[in-house]
Amino acid sequence: MKASDIKHMIEAGMPDAEVEVLGDDGQHFDARVISPSFAGKTLVQQHKMVKETLGDKFASGELHALSLKTSAPQ
Results as ranks from 00 to 15, higher is better:
E52M: 04
I10S: 05
D25Q: 11
A39L: 11
L54G: 06
D25M: 12
V21T: 03
E18S: 09
L54M: 05
I34C: 12
S35C: 15
D5I: 09
A59T: 04
H8N: 08
R32W: 07
M9F: 03
I10A: 07
I6A: 01
E52C: 03
M49E: 12
I10H: 04
A12M: 00
F58W: 05
K7T: 04
G55H: 01
K41L: 03
L54W: 05
H47A: 06
G23A: 09
V33L: 15
L43P: 12
F29Q: 03
K57S: 03
P36W: 05
E18R: 02
Q74V: 12
S35W: 05
P36V: 05
A72G: 15
G23R: 03
Q74I: 10
H47Y: 01
S60N: 15
S60I: 08
A31S: 12
M1G: 13
F58I: 03
M14I: 14
P73K: 08
G23F: 01
V33A: 15
D25E: 14
G55S: 01
K69G: 13
A12F: 00
E18A: 07
Q74E: 14
T42Q: 08
T42S: 15
L43G: 06
H47T: 08
M14R: 04
Q74M: 10
L22W: 00
L54V: 04
L63Q: 08
G55T: 03
L66A: 13
A17C: 13
A3W: 05
G40N: 02
S71R: 15
D30H: 14
D24M: 09
G23N: 09
P15Y: 00
L43H: 09
V33T: 13
F29W: 06
G23Y: 01
I10P: 07
E52A: 09
E52L: 06
D5V: 10
K48C: 02
A12H: 01
R32N: 14
S67P: 09
S60P: 08
V21Q: 04
M1V: 11
S67Q: 13
P36Q: 10
S4L: 01
I6G: 03
V44E: 13
T70M: 05
K48H: 06
Q74A: 14
V21R: 02
A17R: 11
A17E: 14
S67L: 08
D25H: 11
L54P: 09
A17T: 12
H47I: 04
F58L: 04
Q74F: 09
A65T: 13
F29V: 05
P15A: 00
K48I: 03
L63W: 01
S4M: 01
Q27M: 14
L22G: 01
S37N: 14
Q27N: 13
V33H: 11
E52W: 00
T42G: 08
R32A: 15
T70W: 04
K69F: 09
D30E: 15
F38W: 08
L63S: 06
F29D: 06
G55P: 00
S35I: 07
G13D: 12
K41T: 02
E11P: 02
